[in-house]
């Protein structure tokens, strides 16, 4: 559905995208996961034909975003990170306006947007500017879907949104999937990776890995220990960092995640060292790596 080969994009001296390649299959939820400044929005703007690129080949639905931008624009939906509908128009007016531009009507698309639109329909006479953040987001999504797009591009739809609203939004995305829409979504939240069919990890303009989320979590090549102690994570991290065999350590929820420079099973060694360092009630266990562990280790290698 989307094919990118050796794509590069520079802004003056800054290399925003460095020779990236990836494929997005029809009807999948493809997640682009990485921090601010990684190049997520740049890539999204290139794919939606809003930005030119310097090198490489890009095809969206088999068409070039440069020469066939009109075709692409008619067949994709795009929800930018910033709310960009008309704040002075009502909910209904905004939707009618976008329907009109694409030569359709709210009624014709109702089947697709129904589940989302019903949640904002009680406020259809309200101006978009007076809606809450969550409502604005639902309206923007309806507008992006009004012409039955083949691909939906969502640029950080859940940034700054609380965990409950994030869950609800992902539920909506997964429902849309049943309408044969390919979804290309970006997010800085690593824990959303598991909600996608496939993901690409991106950092500083480079793709670190592309795979199924479960394969990426497993790609961690060291034994990972989860450790806790009575004195708290700060003291624990300090002591672990002073350990002769220290490889990496960082806080992870209520525990710290630690890797050791040795490959052998050394749980009891670590425990003994920490006890000798004056820490108490030490709990140590091997733990499964998450996407975030893998992301951190790939960033360090980079």
């Amino acid at each position: 559905m989307i094919s990118i080969r050796n794509l590069s994009k520079n802004y003056e001296e800054v290399q925003a995208l460095k020779n990236i390649s990836l494929e997005v299959k029809p009807k999948e939820i493809f997640g682009l996961i990485g921090p601010d400044g990684a190049g997520k929005t740049t890539l999204m703007r290139i794919l939606t034909s809003l930005l030119l690129f310097d090198e490489g080949e890009v095809q969206v639905m088999g068409k070039s975003p440069i020469s066939d931008y009109q075709f692409i624009r008619n067949h994709i939906g795009y929800m930018p990170g910033k709310f960009s509908l008309y704040e002075d128009l009502t909910v209904e007016e905004n939707l009618s306006f976008f329907a009109n531009i694409f030569g359709t009507t709210i009624e014709k698309s109702y089947d697709l947007i129904k589940d989302i639109y019903q949640q904002i329909e009680p406020f259809k006479k309200r101006k978009a500017g007076a809606l809450s953040g969550g409502m604005k987001q639902k309206l923007a999504l309806c507008a992006a879907l009004i012409h039955y797009p083949k691909i939906l591009f969502l640029d950080e739809p859940t940034t700054g949104v609380d965990p409950v609203s994030r869950k609800e939004f992902w539920h909506i995305i997964q429902q849309l999937h049943h309408h044969d829409i390919t979804i290309f979504v970006s997010t800085p939240y690593m824990d959303e990776a598991n909600l996608c069919d496939r993901i690409a990890l991106i950092d500083k303009g480079e793709i670190l890995n592309v795979d199924l989320p479960e394969n990426i979590s497993k790609a961690f090549d060291k034994t990972l220990y989860a450790i806790q102690c009575h004195e708290g994570n700060y003291q624990l991290i300090k002591k672990l960092r002073e350990y002769t065999h220290f490889d990496s350590v960082f806080p992870f929820g209520e525990e710290v995640h630690y890797t050791d420079a040795r490959a052998t099973d050394i749980e009891s060694d670590i425990k003994l060292y920490l006890e000798e360092s004056g820490l108490t009630s030490i709990q140590i266990r091997k733990t499964a790596s998450t996407i975030e562990d893998v992301f951190i280790s790939l960033m360090n290698k980079n």
């Binding site: 921090p35 601010d36 990684a38 960082f250 992301f295």
Partner: peptide
Amino acid sequence: TGGVDPITRRQFWEMIYE
């Protein structure tokens, strides 16, 4: 820490701990 990469996020928390 909104939107910050996971390594920086953790370094930031270590500064808070300190």
